[in-house]
Structure formats: structure tokens, C-alpha cells
Amino acid sequence: MSNLIDRRAPENTTPFVTGLADAVLREIAELLDTLIETGETGIIDLHSLPMTDADRDMLKEGLGEGEVRVDLDVAGPSRIEETGTAGVWWVRHEGADGRIAAELIEVTRIPEILLSHPDDIREGRTRLREHLDEAGETGTEELAE
């Protein structure tokens, strides 16, 4: 039975350049104009575009390689890289199994997910205060002994 089944993967049906990389690069250029002139940030969802591998390579080549690379460990890994075009970030979120959950181009000074959230800062302060209070009580007890 098993020799009757062709286990080869289907032939690659899209090894061509669709022109999407060029369209995305032009959109990025416009988003950079907006960022410079008004400070408004922009995002493009790459996951929703039917890009081929060749398109993706063209897009990467067009943006170049930058100098900042950040790895996050938040509900699975994420990699955030600034491209060679300053202000243009390539954000890739994965689940724990390595599957891409979201892939975005962010046009901004820094992607929002890198900033500490005010609620997390408040929670951190609370924990630190509690720790200091506990340490203070222990220290007082030790001194009393």
C-alpha cells in the first residue's frame, strides 16, 4: 500500500516574483514620509500578503541589514530587527513550536512591544517594595537578636 502513495511534496507552484516586494517597499517609503513629517507610525502585515520566497528575499534586500536585533521570550520566541533602513523594523512572532504567528514591518522609532508597559512597571514596583519591606523586617529581627 505504502509504495502506491507518492510522498513527494507538491511541486512549488510559486517560484516567481509577483511584484509584491516592490509594492511593499513603495508603501514603506510612504510610511517613512508620514513618520518623518507627522510622527505617526505605520505597520504592514506581511502574513496576509501572498508573497513568494523570491518576493521576501527581494524585500529583505531592498531594506538591508541593520544594527539592532532583539530576541524576546514571550509566549514563544519573537525576533525584532531594525533593517538597514533606519526606522523600519522587521517583527516576527512565533508560537512555542516555531510556527510564525505574525510577521510585521513596523515603521517607527521603536516597536511598541519593546517598551515596558505602565501596568507592568507598576506591578514591578509593587513586587520590589514588598521585597524591600520583607528584607527590612528580617534585618530588624536579626538586629534585635
Partner: peptide, 15 residues
Amino acid sequence: ISRRAFGKYCAYLAS
């Protein structure tokens, strides 16, 4: 679990 997890989940959800 930080708010970044919410941000990441919603980026995934929006996509």
C-alpha cells in the same frame, strides 16, 4: 505574564 504577551497575542489575532 507581562502585557507584552497580550500585545503579541493580539498581533497574532489581528493577522
